[in-house]
């Protein structure tokens, strides 16, 4: 099996689906001739033409709304929002329209739409190119919100998202684009959009996390191994809906739960996972649920010392993990 980057896997997922299904199209800023600011759609306009890989005006409501319209009329659009930070002008179209189309029409219409956007920091992107604002969408029924953490899932989940009959927000960690590599099959496959994946099996503690933090969590877990602590790492993959059963199984087995994320903690994915664990695993817990994430500041600053102070790295995660292990 070929080893590919996270970015190549995403591109391959789109390319394969566009070859298989001529209803699939891509619409976003700079996605055409330039191939996107990160190069994710590079070469696709050359293969599929200007109408199926189309440069949009610099207007996010237009990007999402045009894709909604195209989906009404039989297409399977993939909208690319250049940075998750810039999705906000499109939120009315996502939350008031896309999320409610099936429900409000009593199942007369549905909205097969994928919205891709890079998120996350650690690339000197400052306040407006580093955010992790996925939680904003996780409370919205009618949407799926997914975050792949590795190339295999990136391709398989994107293919599944394109084929899904409802709107899927597909968030890509921008620092993972070229830093995360892995085996990706050439053949057609999908990965379910609503299941956790146990990345590392352990008995004493489970870390629930998603995105690039999965990699950080595995490194931190390995640091505890020599001291006899067996740490499980579970990649949530789907943030809405959360895989309740998958979360409960690991939490009950391990008895100690740490939830790690890049976003700030208040009213976040970690809050919802904590609630599930509190509701379903009370008698199985050996310690209070612990969480680690970004600080309660508006967004990630630019200067290196400030950025480092914001981010959860392996050291910070290890230290939190030890506190939980010793509880």
């Amino acid at each position: 099996m070929a080893v590919k980057t996270y970015l190549e896997a995403i591109r391959e997922g789109m390319r394969d689906e566009m070859r298989r299904d001529d209803r699939v199209m891509i619409f976003g800023e700079d996605v055409g001739f330039k191939g996107g600011v990160f190069g994710v759609t590079e070469g696709l306009q050359r293969e599929f033409g200007e109408w199926r890989v189309m440069d949009s005006p610099l207007a996010e409501s237009c990007i999402v709304g045009v894709c909604i319209g195209a989906a009404f009329n039989g297409m399977r659009p993939i909208a690319e929002i250049q940075f998750q930070d810039f999705i906000l002008p499109g939120v009315d179209q996502i939350v008031s329209e896309a999320a409610k189309i099936r429900y409000r029409s009593n199942d007369d219409w549905n909205m097969p739409l994928v919205i891709r956007a890079p998120f996350g920091g650690g690339v000197h992107g400052a306040l407006y190119h580093s955010q992790s604002i996925e939680a904003m969408f996780c409370g919205v029924p009618g949407l799926r919100v997914v975050v792949p953490s590795n190339p295999y899932d990136a391709k398989g989940m994107l293919v599944a998202a394109i084929r899904d009959p409802d709107p899927v927000l597909y968030f890509e960690h921008k620092k993972a684009y070229r830093s995360i590599r892995g085996e990706v099959p050439d053949h057609e496959y999908t990965v379910p959009l609503d299941r956790v994946r146990v990345v590392r099996e352990g008995r004493d503690i489970v870390i629930f996390t998603y995105g690039l933090m999965v990699d950080t969590a595995v490194q931190a877990a390995e640091r505890l191994a020599p001291d006899g602590f067996s740490v499980s790492v579970v990649d949530l993959r789907s943030l809405r809906p959360l895989d309740r059963q998958g979360i409960v199984e690991s939490a009950r087995r391990c008895g100690k739960v740490l939830i790690a994320q890049e976003a700030n903690l208040a009213v976040s994915v970690s809050s919802e996972v904590s609630a599930i664990v509190a509701e379903e695993c009370f008698e199985y817990l050996d310690a209070p649920v612990m969480r680690i994430g970004g600080p309660e500041v508006p967004a990630m600053p630019f200067a290196k010392p400030l950025e480092d102070a914001y981010l959860v790295d392996v050291d910070k995660l290890e230290s939190k993990l030890r506190r939980l292990a010793e509880y």
């Binding site: 409501s61 237009c62 999402v64 709304g65 045009v66 894709c67 909604i68 319209g69 195209a70 989906a71 009404f72 009329n73 039989g74 297409m75 659009p77 009315d92 179209q93 008031s96 329209e97 409610k100 189309i101 409000r104 029409s105 007369d108 219409w109």
Partner: peptide, 19 residues
């Protein structure tokens, strides 16, 4: 299908016509 938020349908129309 239409909701209550006005003007969203304009962009849908453009997208439908694009398809």
């Amino acid at each position: 299908t239409t909701g209550s938020v006005v003007a969203t349908q304009f962009i849908h129309a453009a997208g439908i016509a694009l398809a």
